[in-house]
Design a protein around this nucleic acid. Structure first.
Length: 564
RNA sequence: GCGCCUGUAGCUCAGCAGGAUAGAGCAACGGCCUUCUAAGCCGUAGGUCCAGGGUUCGAAUCCCUGCGGGCGUGCCA
């Protein structure tokens, strides 16, 4: 990075062009044989009235090479610069070995809060694979922001309010019983929910009963409240098992019910601002001049809606956490909703709405079609994680029969495979869930990266340490070693970009780059070389790779077992 | 209908603030374990970058049009 700056300065001096513009032009050649940095001369051709190769040749003669750049070469219209390999390798290696697992971290955040709304499960509904994206992306962002010096606030905005709880009570009272629900837990509740919808098809009066029961919850009727809280308890207990498996934590579980008494003042404020108006009996904020349908704040029967609650939630979060950023990790299905929400906040005069962002992601479906609780077309996340762990355990038994605590490793790797699957691609891509893909551990997968880490650990352990003062980076200038060094050198920038774009996959790709180059290095070079100097240098590189991979896995929410 | 997103190898995807022969993985085929974990490494094969225009010295990348797919489109969340 600094070298790029220095190069830009040197070129700018000779061409008289703006230095930051030159910096923009400098690129990394597609092939390391061509050089480490390239300056394309095409754009200068018009102004200088010369052919690009001629310009490149002239620059080659006149530009003073900054420290660390050992030579320049003309290839076509490009002037390519070559880095001094050993000083480059030494720089990266020293930085990683001295910073350890802090390598790539920063103080960008200055301790400021970042609210991250993710996972946000519904009570009495299955915790299924459709919730994995939000959970995994949010958790990763939580760690990435923390790593960059922010104080992340993880919020699980529980779906714990609404007429569906009236339906649950009706269904429970008609067809359920305590023993059954305790035995079958959420799945038992879901069965009741599905049955309710089936029966309501032919007996619509059930819906009236459901509304009446929900009304009782609102009014604090003891029986209704007791059942409601019980459903919530059962769900949370089961959901915590999954969060434990995933290694996911939250700082707040303030959900829909929490905001029930916080909406009235917000509606009042909208009225004061004069942005609320009646339309077809409902209270709306007209957004037609922003090319959006109106945002409905109060239904014609006076009830609040999703949007009402989200406005109140956003304001509450600002007042409570004074966030520097407030992220909503929610599927792109709700794009319009968030555009409306942010616009309403803006119209209310909250300038901090600029710090709110909808971190959207693609839909999860199954090969058979859309996920649907009501039609029983669901795959429970817990089942996927368990299957992954079981398969992993089988592989470990086969490949590492001596390994102690096989279950721990199986958990780390099995769960890691599932999480990796949703974090390796950009958020916006839709995902069609398939068991064979979820349970594939070959190639660009979490287990591959974890495996690389375990191999590094294993070699370092066998070596029993190395003397850092003996490390001579000039022994690491072969192509395979340099590829690892370069990959590791790019890691910090990838972390920053991931935060800036709220895209964990950028970290995943960077870690994969380190892992795959490390595997190649491992194959090409015998680390435990007879020559002590060579051995130390390679052990240092292995140590650095191990460190960066571990950090990368952590930032994605994966464990880095030392053996597997 | 309108709006947003998306279309790159058989499949899943990188690459898209324009640049040098379009990259990975999976699947297929062929090699490599008496050397540090073969969940690995190497090789072969596989592409009109949806189509057509335009801008540019240069377009997978930017603009326009069309086509395919997804999502959304006022009282669910």
């Amino acid at each position: 990075m600094e070298q790029k700056q220095a190069l830009a300065a040197a070129i700018s001096q000779k061409t008289g062009m703006n230095q930051s513009e030159i910096l923009d032009w400098i690129e990394i050649p597609p092939n390391p044989d061509l050089g480490d940095y390239a300056f394309p001369c095409f754009r200068l051709a018009k102004a200088l009235r010369k052919a690009p190769p001629v310009i490149a040749a002239e620059l080659k003669e006149s530009v003073a090479l900054p420290a660390g750049i050992c030579r320049a070469e003309v290839t076509g219209g490009y002037l390519n610069f070559f880095e001094d390999k050993s000083s480059f390798a030494e720089g990266i290696l020293n930085k990683i070995l001295s910073e350890g697992e802090k390598y790539g971290s920063g103080s960008l955040g200055g301790g400021r809060n970042v609210c991250i709304d993710y996972s946000s499960i519904n009570i009495a509904k299955p915790f299924h694979i459709g919730h994995l994206s939000s959970t995994a992306i949010g958790n990763s962002l939580y760690r990435i922001y923390g790593f960059l010096g922010y104080t992340p606030v993880g919020i699980n905005h529980l779906g714990d309010w609404g007429t569906q709880f009236g339906k649950m009570i009706v269904a429970y009272k008609m067809w359920g019983n305590q023993a059954l629900v305790e035995k079958e837990s959420v799945r038992g509740l879901v069965k009741l929910y599905v049955r309710f919808h089936d029966e309501a098809e032919t007996h619509p009066e059930l819906n009236d009963e459901a509304r009446a029961w929900f009304r009782k919850i609102e009014l604090g009727d003891p029986e209704a409240l007791a059942l409601f809280n019980w459903f919530k308890e059962i769900t949370m207990k089961e959901v915590f098992n999954v969060y434990d498996l995933l290694g996911v934590k939250f700082d707040s579980y303030a959900g829909e019910s929490f905001y029930e008494d916080k909406m009235a003042p917000v509606v009042e404020k909208m009225r004061e601002k004069g942005i609320l108006k009646e339309d077809q009996g409902a209270q709306i904020v007209d957004l037609s001049e922003y090319d959006m349908p109106p945002c409905i704040i109060l239904r014609s029967d006076g009830a609040t809606l999703y949007a009402t609650r989200d406005v109140a939630t956003a304001i509450y979060r600002k007042n409570t956490y004074d966030f520097a950023k407030s992220l909503y990790v929610v599927a792109y299905q709700q794009n319009l909703h968030f555009r409306q929400l942010f616009k309403v906040l803006e119209l209310m005069g909250y300038d901090w709405v600029k710090d709110c962002e909808h971190v959207n992601f693609g839909m999860v479906s199954m090969e058979e079609g859309t996920l649907s609780t009501r039609h029983g077309n669901v795959v429970y996340l817990e089942d996927v994680l368990k299957a992954a762990m079981e398969k992993t355990l089988e592989i470990i038994k086969e490949k590492s029969p001596d390994l102690e605590n096989k279950e721990d490793a199986a958990k780390a790797v099995g769960v890691g495979a599932v999480i990796w699957g949703v974090l390796y691609n950009s958020r916006i891509k839709d995902i069609t869930f398939s068991w064979s893909k979820a349970l594939n551990f070959d190639g660009e997968t979490g287990p591959y990266v974890q495996y690389t880490h375990a191999r590094c650990c294993s070699v370092l352990k066998k070596a029993g340490g190395y003397d850092r003062s003996l490390v001579d980076a000039s022994l690491l200038t072969d192509a395979a070693s340099m590829a690892v060094i370069k990959a590791m050198g790019g890691f910090p920038e990838a972390v920053r970009a991931a935060a800036e774009k709220n895209e964990p996959y950028l970290v995943a790709r960077a870690v994969m780059d380190v892992a795959s180059t490390t595997n190649k290095f491992y194959y090409d070079n015998r680390i435990m070389d007879d020559d002590p100097a060579v051995r130390s240098a390679r052990l240092a590189l292995t140590d650095a790779a191990r460190t960066v991979i571990k950090t990368g896995l952590y930032l994605l929410g994966l464990q880095a077992p030392e053996r597997m």
